[in-house]
């Protein structure tokens, strides 16, 4: 058997952060559900390393935009380019592999799995163990760092001779990474609980940890602060900034204006499926079209 080492999961931490580099382009995307035009010729870019806000009144098409970007829906027309790859119409798992992760507006965890296992499912997006690999564990690896060896001294000695299966190495690394992420979002104290038993705020943050576990370049958060009190919102703002500091790009849907204004670098505003404004938070906030949209006045256009 070949002596192999597998690289630690690639992280985007050391990716260059420049404001000019475009990570994702939404190019004239239209998405119809029968007669409903959920997205109408929407056009915007996400730049590497920024926090982009996506706002708009209820039913504006924000979640639909996420769904188009993550492969849940195929745009009726237009293209979406991520990191140089055309992704409109790709399968969700393929898009995840490319590096887009998301959370859901209405929490969608795996309720009968523990918090830790939920995150590990995310980690598995980068793991390679197949059905046969898990069954027979023939793919062995030698020369691993101490931390990837079994703790039990007998097994540890044995591992020097017969190596460690890729399954085992990936499990151990994924568990370590999952714990790290649970600590990062601040819910490690209840890692072993079934996710359906977790309090609401924990569930929201668990969704973020699970999304981060897929090692994304772009993290899309769909109303992560929904149902949060002001203190929790403050925490969340800190968390979003720390996520960006890890080298990720963040796309944020949020209704809470204070949060959006406080954390985003740029904002795109949708109304009735069309983009009505785009720019720095302060500029967008003064835009008469945006104000009109939020005050519920009929759109002049």
């Amino acid at each position: 058997m070949p002596e192999q080492t597998i690289p630690e999961s690639t992280s985007v931490q050391d990716a260059p952060i420049s404001d000019s580099e475009v990570l994702l382009t939404v190019d004239h995307v239209t998405l119809r559900f029968g007669g409903v035009v959920a997205l109408n010729d929407v056009d915007f870019e996400i730049r590497t390393g920024e926090i982009l806000g996506l706002i708009g009144p209820n039913g504006a098409g924000k979640t639909t935009c996420f769904n188009a970007m993550t492969g849940v829906y195929k745009p009726t027309s237009g293209s979406i380019t991520f990191d140089g790859t055309q992704i409109a119409g790709s399968k969700p798992h393929q898009i995840t592999a490319l590096g887009i992760a998301r959370t859901f507006q209405n929490i969608r965890l795996f309720p009968e799995m523990s918090a830790l296992e939920n995150v590990m499912v995310g980690c598995d997006a980068r793991n390679k163990t197949s059905v046969l690999g898990a069954l027979f564990r023939m793919y062995r690896i030698w020369g691993l760092p101490e931390e990837d060896l079994p703790r039990n001294p007998v097994r540890r000695a044995l591992a020097k001779v017969i190596g460690v299966s890729r399954h085992e190495v990936e499990e151990r690394r994924s568990r370590r990474k999952s714990w790290e992420l649970l600590r990062f979002v601040g819910i490690a104290d209840r890692a072993d609980e079934l996710s359906r038993n977790l309090p609401y705020g924990y569930q929201r943050r668990l969704e973020i940890a699970r999304a981060l576990a897929t090692d994304p370049k772009l993290l899309c958060l769909d109303e992560p602060a929904a149902g949060f009190n002001p203190a929790e919102k403050e925490d969340l703002m800190g968390l979003i900034r720390r996520i960006r500091d890890r080298g990720l790009t963040v796309l944020l849907i949020e209704h809470d204006m204070r949060l959006v204004m406080g954390v985003t670098d740029r904002i795109v505003v949708l109304e009735f499926g069309s983009k009505i404004a785009e720019g720095a938070p302060a500029v967008v906030a003064r835009d008469p079209k945006v104000i009109a949209a939020y005050l519920g006045e009929p759109d002049a256009a």
Partner: peptide
């Protein structure tokens, strides 16, 4: 062996919420 592996987790994830599993990278 399957249950406590990537494969077993993928199955559970599909059982729990197939669409969410797909978005988490599981080829359902």
């Amino acid at each position: 062996r399957l249950e406590h592996s990537r494969v077993g987790r993928a199955w559970l994830a599909i059982r729990e919420d197939e669409d969410a599993a797909a978005v988490m990278g599981v080829n359902a």
